[in-house]
Amino acid sequence: MNTVDMFHLKGKVALITGGGRGIGKQIAESLSDAECSIAICSRKLENCKQTAEELQEKGIQVKAYQCDITNEEKVDQTVESVLKDFGRIDILVNNSGTTWGEDVENMPLEAWEKVMNVNVTGTFLMSKAVGKQMIEQKAGKIINIASAAGLKAEPPEVLNAIGYSTSKAGVIHFTKDLARKWAKHKIYVNGIAPGFFPTKMTKVVLDRYEDQIKEQNPLQMLGNDNAIKGVALLLASEASDYITGQIISVDGGSTL
């Protein structure tokens, strides 16, 4: 097989949570470049609709859905709708996430629970719902978006969000464990651990500490709009058919 052909996704369908903006949107752009059909969902439908309109200009099939990934009934309904509209789901990207910055001793319980529910429980619920269909078709690729914060402890002046970092560490182990459990079904489960990217979620931190973060990074840079696209395409395509249970850091070397 021609090496470039291994990255083609024509005839495949990807469901991307939080695909309306930021890293989720970048991944949607990447997979659509490989001719993959795209279903994107998030709690805010408007963001997804706008991204869907942009992707449709490439001539691919794309549709936006509203979904609260912490609600199992809503997750199941969304997955059923995607299967009805597209006929299958070959790739799942669990990207939706949230954070809450606060000193540990002052963090409200509801803040901790919100972060855990979105980042960990949401990843579980969506994987469970899509995984049932992938088990039936005996094939699938799941990509979980973790974080460099789940691999190392940042100083509080850079990242003071213990719920977020703990949740992303949970996503990392969930990825490895699920890969072990579902390998027999030919379902590949891998993760991406981004470092600092300019997104809505990181804006407050970067406004204060961007120079310091860059100085501590071996490549002395932040992620850009293209930095994650190649890795996402690798893990979604046949090119990664001997890779499962792995976490790829896209962080400029910050976790070295």
Results as ranks from 00 to 15, higher is better:
Ala149Pro: 00
Gly253Gln: 10
Glu54Trp: 00
Gln216Gly: 15
Gly131Arg: 03
Ile192Lys: 11
Tyr164Met: 03
Asp211Thr: 09
Lys128Trp: 04
Ile143Met: 01
Leu31His: 07
Ala183Gly: 10
Arg43Lys: 13
Lys181Pro: 00
Ile187Pro: 02
Glu105Pro: 01
Ile16Ser: 03
Ile213Leu: 08
Ile228Arg: 02
Val13Pro: 03
Lys25Thr: 00
Lys63Pro: 00
Arg180Asp: 12
Asn190Met: 11
Val130Lys: 04
Lys141Leu: 02
Thr175Leu: 07
Lys186Ser: 15
Phe197Cys: 13
Leu233Gly: 01
Phe196Glu: 10
Asn95Tyr: 04
Leu109Ala: 14
Lys63Met: 11
Thr202Cys: 09
Glu57Arg: 13
Pro108Lys: 14
Glu154Cys: 00
Ile60Glu: 05
Ser254Lys: 09
Ala179Thr: 06
Asp90Glu: 07
Val104Thr: 14
Glu73Asn: 11
Asp211Ser: 12
Thr70Gln: 13
Gly101Cys: 12
Leu125His: 06
Thr3Val: 12
Arg208Cys: 07
Glu102Lys: 14
Gln220Ile: 05
Gly163Lys: 01
Asp251Cys: 14
Trp100Ala: 08
Thr121Val: 10
Val158Leu: 15
Thr17Asn: 09
Gly230Ala: 07
Val62Arg: 04
Ser147Ile: 04
Val231Ile: 15
Thr202Gly: 09
Leu109Cys: 13
Thr51Phe: 00
Ile60Arg: 05
Leu15Ala: 05
Asp177Trp: 07
Ala39Phe: 08
Ile145His: 02
Thr199Val: 12
Gly252Arg: 09
Lys184Phe: 01
Ile89Trp: 06
Leu233Gln: 05
Tyr209Gly: 02
Pro198Arg: 14
Ile40Arg: 01
Ala34Pro: 06
Glu54Phe: 02
Phe196Pro: 08
Glu238Lys: 14
Lys49Glu: 14
Ala179Gly: 15
Leu9Met: 11
Arg208Trp: 09
Lys84Gln: 13
Ser42His: 05
Gly97Ala: 15
Val250Asn: 05
Gly19Thr: 06
Lys84His: 11
Lys128Phe: 06
Lys49Gly: 12
Lys152Asn: 04
His185Lys: 12
Val205Leu: 12
Gln216Val: 05
Ala236Pro: 02
Asp225Tyr: 04
Ile27Met: 15
Asp68Leu: 08
Asn119Ile: 05
Gln246Arg: 11
Leu109Lys: 10
Ala153Pro: 00
Ala28Asp: 04
Gly140Glu: 07
Glu113Leu: 13
